[in-house]
Amino acid sequence: MKCKICSRPVKEKGYCSLHLKAYQNIYGKFVVWEKALGVTWMDYLIKISKNSLSGEWAKEVAKHLIEGESRNDKEK
């Protein structure tokens, strides 16, 4: 199985070890953002995907999650 984002082998949750770490960081930092700005999950993902200080892999996962959320919304 290949990672949802790159061609590396999957480690967990459909991500390779590198994108998995980015995914874990994104989840972990949401609490801080929520407390600081009162943002929603979607707003948070958009903000970090556009932030120049975010790492490239973190941006890739954020964008992937945004696409996933949008797809889910459409299906609903």
Binding site: K21, N25, I26, V32, W33, S54, G55, E56, W57, A58
Partner: peptide, 12 residues
């Protein structure tokens, strides 16, 4: 490099 690429900034 990995730490830079998986980095998620937080506001303050």
């Amino acid at each position: 490099e990995k730490n830079i690429q998986v980095f998620v900034p937080t506001p303050f």
